[in-house]
Structures are given as structure tokens and as C-alpha cells.
């Protein structure tokens, strides 16, 4: 519960950051969304033992975070929250894959550790870029971007409504949980029947709320289609952003920059 309350708190925080007005915030959301997708696709396309070539890719999330003026801490704390699954699956790699892959001075490094590190790098890269994307764009613009890119309207409307009422319902649920915990003792959360009644009441309230929202929509002329004004057209800066980054990602995919730098420095080419 604590973690969900924190999620709730954080959720609003990301949207607050998106309210800032840096040049990055002003870009078309489609440009940022597509560039991030290209970024992720390129990052995950590397082989499982790749480490060095992944490092230059930090430039993208770092760029978003810096230019977007987002606190690094904010992204970092979320990274940690999202860590468990990648860690859980990745941690088996060192245990299973013990074939020596690399020697460094007197140490032998097994393939498992290398691929584990690679998984962690990918994790940090992909997750931080998505978080940074939301923080410099905001949810509602991402929704309009999805709509403009051809996502079915019903689905986008779902996303919008869900995000909007997430705050309201989390608030309601936490009030209910709070009220209940005042009257239950010894950490007992109650049996299944009580659970059913409790969650069921929240569900009924939710459905009644949906009815009221529907009435409110109808009162303002809702006819099954939610209309929105869409933001300005795709500009030159947007094209430049999207193409520039995509090109860089593809170049970094083709040439292992750190290895080249290292070889130049150590003169081993």
C-alpha cells in the first residue's frame, strides 16, 4: 500500500514536470514518442554480450533529462522501483552461463556476468528514456500523439479517462483503506468475504461515478465521440529532432564508438 501511495504521488510529479516550458517541452509529442521508440528498438537490438557499444546511448536519456530540466533523482527513484523483474530474470545469467568470455589482467569474466551487466544497462537505458519522455511531454500530449499516429480513438479515450480518474479513485481507495485500518487490529486485513464486500463497494461507487460522468458528458452534447482540438502541425524542429536522433542511434548501432575510441587510445587497431 505504501508503495502504491508513493506511485500515486510520483504520478502527479511527472505530469508537473511536463508542465515546464523548455524547448524540449515545446516539441511535437509525436517527434519525441517516435524518437524514443527508435531508441528502444536500437538499444534492444544489440547482442546479449554487448556492453561497451551500449554506453554512448546514454546520451539520449541524459539529453532529455538535462535539456528538459528534470531532476535526475526523480528518474532514478523510479528506476529502482521498476527494477525487480529485470533483476529477477537477469540474475540467473551469471549462475547459469559460466563460460569464460573475457580476460582482464588476472580476472576471468564469465559470459553470464557480462550478459547480466548488459541486461542492466538496457534496463536503465530503456526505462529512463521512457520516464524522461513522459516528464518532458506529459500524458495528454502523448495521447494526442497516439491519436495522430493512428491509434483507434476509443483506445486513446480510454487512456485519457483512465489517467484522469486514477487520481480520484486512488484517493477514494486510500481513504477507504484508512478508514478500515482504524477499525481493524493486529494487522488483520480480513477474510475473503470482507474483502469482497470492501472491494465490491469501491467497485459499485466507481460504477455510479461512471454513470454521473456519463450524465455530465451528455449534458454537454456528448454523442459517443470525444472531440479534441489537436496541437499545431509537425514543424521543422520536430523533423530535425526525430531524424537527427534516429540517425545518431543507427550510427551508434553500426559503429561501436567506445571500442573505436579505446582502440585508438591503446593503439591496437
Amino acid at each position: 500500500m505504501a508503495s502504491i501511495s508513493r506511485h500515486f504521488f510520483d504520478l502527479g510529479h511527472l505530469d508537473d514536470l511536463a508542465g515546464a516550458s523548455t524547448p524540449l517541452h515545446r516539441l511535437d509529442p509525436r517527434a519525441k514518442l517516435l524518437a524514443t521508440l527508435v531508441f528502444i528498438a536500437v538499444v534492444v537490438s544489440f547482442g546479449k554480450y554487448e556492453i561497451a557499444a551500449l554506453i554512448p546511448f546514454f546520451v539520449y536519456p541524459v539529453f532529455l533529462i538535462s535539456v528538459g530540466n528534470i531532476p535526475f533523482k526523480c528518474v532514478l527513484s523510479r528506476l529502482v522501483l521498476a527494477l525487480p523483474f529485470a533483476l529477477l530474470v537477469g540474475i540467473f545469467n551469471p549462475l547459469i552461463d559460466r563460460a569464460p568470455l573475457s580476460h582482464l589482467a588476472n580476472f576471468t569474466i564469465s559470459g553470464g556476468w557480462i550478459s547480466f551487466s548488459s541486461i542492466m544497462l538496457r534496463f536503465v537505458l530503456t526505462v529512463s528514456s521512457v520516464l524522461a519522455l513522459i516528464a518532458v511531454t506529459g500524458f495528454s500530449p502523448v495521447c494526442s500523439a497516439l491519436l495522430r499516429l493512428g491509434t483507434p480513438k476509443i483506445f486513446v479515450v480510454q487512456l485519457m479517462l483512465m489517467h484522469r480518474y486514477l487520481f480520484v479513485l486512488l484517493d477514494e481507495a486510500s481513504k477507504m483503506v484508512g478508514a478500515k485500518s482504524l477499525r481493524t487490529f493486529e494487522n488483520s486485513t480480513g477474510g475473503l468475504r470482507i474483502y469482497g464486500a470492501f472491494t465490491g463497494s469501491l467497485l459499485l461507487r466507481t460504477m455510479e461515478r461512471a454513470e454521473r460522468i456519463y450524465s455530465a458528458m451528455q449534458c454537454r452534447g456528448f454523442d459517443g465521440d470525444i472531440k479534441r482540438t489537436l496541437p499545431a502541425e509537425f514543424g521543422k524542429r520536430d523533423i530535425l529532432f526525430l531524424c537527427g536522433w534516429s540517425l545518431l542511434f543507427l550510427l551508434l548501432r553500426a559503429f561501436n564508438l567506445p571500442l573505436i575510441i579505446g582502440q585508438i587510445l591503446t593503439g591496437t587497431m
Binding site: 480510454q158 480518474y165 477514494e172 486510500s174 477507504m176 480480513g190 474483502y195 472491494t199 469501491l202
Partner: peptide, 25 residues
Amino acid sequence: LDDRRIPLMGVLGAFVFAAQMINFT
């Protein structure tokens, strides 16, 4: 589509999130 279900779906999505705050032993 019954128009009524548009807000219902959205709000139930949020409910799924909120319901995860409620536990039973």
C-alpha cells in the same frame, strides 16, 4: 457501442489500479 460504456471503461481501468491497494489475508 452503448455510449454509456465509454466512461465506464475508463473509470474501471482506474479501479483496477485502486483495487490493488486493498488486500486480504
